[in-house]
Amino acid sequence: MNDLILKEVARFLFPFIELYGFYIVFHGHLSPGGGFAGGVVCGAGFILYTLAHGHKALYSLLPRHIWTFCESAGLAFFIFLGLVGIFVGREFLANSSAGFPLGRTGELFSSGLVFLLNLAIGLKVASTVTTLFLNLEEED
């Protein structure tokens, strides 16, 4: 695909789509959305970039091994955060009972563990959705 309008629009829209995805991930515990929906929006932004510029341009932005690393790192980060509860003697994914400060209602850095869990899920989902499309794109 070699279309000037598509390329320029994709180059213009790409940062805004990523910003919106990050907004949904970071405000997952305050407003609708969360790690999954935000991660999918981020992945859709990367897919739009791949459609317009080809997968070689995406790999010069972020190489292949970083995508596979992000997939594993998101899952490992989530499990590590869950195990923190067990290490302090509570149940898996324990939040306030494991000693995380809850903060105030409506504040961005509140609700203890949930903020970091959303971040882990967002990382995992965004990289998985993008590699899913890249595997189809790369085959020829």
């Binding site: 949904i24 929906a37 929006v41 992945g43 859709a44 959705v129």
Partner: peptide, 12 residues
């Protein structure tokens, strides 16, 4: 659910 449906169903 609306956000997830719009992102996954209509997009991905």
């Amino acid at each position: 659910i609306a956000l997830a449906e719009a992102a996954i169903g209509a997009g991905i």
